[in-house]
C-alpha cells in the first residue's frame, strides 16, 4: 500500500470511529467516557487529514489551497476502481 492509500485508510478509520461515537452521543449526550473518546479521535483525524491534504489535494471543496490549478477535478474519484 502506498503512502496515499495508507493515509486514506487512516482517515476512513478515524472518521468511522468519530461517526460511530457521535451516533452514540446523540442518545447518550452526557456520557463523559464517550465525550473523551470523541475528542481523542477527532484530534487524530485532524492530523491525518492535514497530512493528506498537504500532499494529495483537498478532501472537501472547502479545504483547497491557493495553487496553480484546481486539483479537485484532477484526482481520481472514490468510486473509481483505480482510486
Amino acid at each position: 500500500m502506498n503512502e496515499q492509500k495508507k493515509l486514506q485508510r487512516m482517515i476512513q478509520t478515524y472518521s468511522f470511529v468519530i461517526y460511530e461515537t457521535a451516533l452514540y452521543l446523540d442518545t447518550h449526550p452526557n456520557c463523559r467516557a464517550a465525550l473523551d473518546y470523541y475528542a481523542r479521535y477527532n484530534a487524530k483525524l485532524s492530523e491525518a487529514v492535514e497530512k493528506y491534504e498537504s500532499r494529495f489535494g483537498p478532501m472537501t471543496i472547502f479545504s483547497g489551497k491557493n495553487c496553480e490549478e484546481w486539483r479537485w477535478v484532477k484526482e481520481p474519484w472514490p468510486w473509481e476502481y483505480n482510486a
Binding site: 485508510r9 476512513q12 472518521s15 468511522f16 472537501t60 471543496i61 472547502f62 472514490p78 476502481y81
Partner: peptide, 14 residues
C-alpha cells in the same frame, strides 16, 4: 451538506 472525497468503507472489486 459537504462532499467528502472518500467512501465510508473501502470498495475495490477485482
Amino acid at each position: 451538506w459537504i462532499y467528502e472525497r472518500k467512501l465510508q468503507f473501502p470498495v475495490k472489486i477485482k
